[in-house]
Design a protein around this nucleic acid. Sequence first.
DNA 1: CAATCGTGGGG
DNA 2: TCCCCAAGATT
Length: 365
Amino acid sequence: MKETLETRADSAHGRRFTAGLLHWNATANDRPMPWKGETDPYRIWLSEIILQQTRVEQGWGYYERFVAAFPTVQELAAAPEQSVFKLWEGLGYYSRCRNLIATARIITEQYGGVFPQQYDDILALKGVGPYTAAAIASFAYNAPYAVLDGNVFRVLSRIFGCALPIDSTEGRKFFAQAAQELLPVGEARAYNQALMDFGATVCKPLPACAACFFQHDCAAFRHGRQGELPVKAKKTAVRERFFQYVLLQHENTLALHPRGPGDVWESLWEPLLFEAGRERDKEAILRALNEEYGIRKEDYTIESAAAKGRQRLSHQLIHFNFLHLGLARRLELPGFDWVPLDKIDDYPFPKTVGAWLKATFAGFG
DNA sequence: CAATCGTGGGG
DNA sequence: TCCCCAAGATT
């Protein structure tokens, strides 16, 4: 397929698409979402952060819980960080949560609780990039900034038959310009919403071309190339890792600590962790426990050593081994808290760790 | 700029 | 089971 069948998105072809899109939006777009039509910039911002690289169905409940817990930006800014992370738990990409808290505090303290209205000021907020700034500016203020997300890449690549890779600089530039040139004056809000809804419900990865208002005018459909667009050039390499957790329990308390920066799951909690280049047996882990922490066989009883797990992240494949030890006395473990079992529900955990704790202590918390 | 950052659903 | 990828941002 030629790289671009269309280079000027403000041509007659592009104008036909925009007109059809807005008509489809007004007559056939039925996609209810809790944040749709929202005019409060705080809630729009909240929804957009939650939805970054996240399916609508997954983010839906999180949005409702966040709005219920923090109806205003001031309440979010005043919340204990850990309670916000707990609410975010399971949603992934936890830097979003850290930036969410920081931005709520900046808006509260530096903007007097009033959400900024200028695109450049919105873009300067932590965790807000070009997509999110355009979404907030258009949905809240109808400002003329076209959103460019996965839906838009897919729709425009097919409509115009553009095979420029969406993960290339040239491709991003083409689609950004096309999306912006298609935006009808004064209708940024409806256009952006319609474009994403259309991509999500009709021009899906596996498209419903039979139901598409633009079928006869779509370059990809005319060439039977819907399945080849959009083009993505690179594949992310997956790193394999081996996590050996040792859960130390003393009476009704667990040794837990928050993960630090520079790795996955920053600010989430976990038990004592050994990481190795390969899977280790129980004896090797207990030996490391002795060598690195001075914890000897007479210090513990083995409660369980059978649990295993596997979690595939977008860029890592992590193998888990779980070892649960009971300690006769509480040891000094720098950096760790001894958390009572009836408090562990207040702590945010990585998915697999939380599932293991829940399975281990079903009935406590 | 290329790599990094989670989780879940669908084909 | 494996691969794709989803309302991306940051460094």
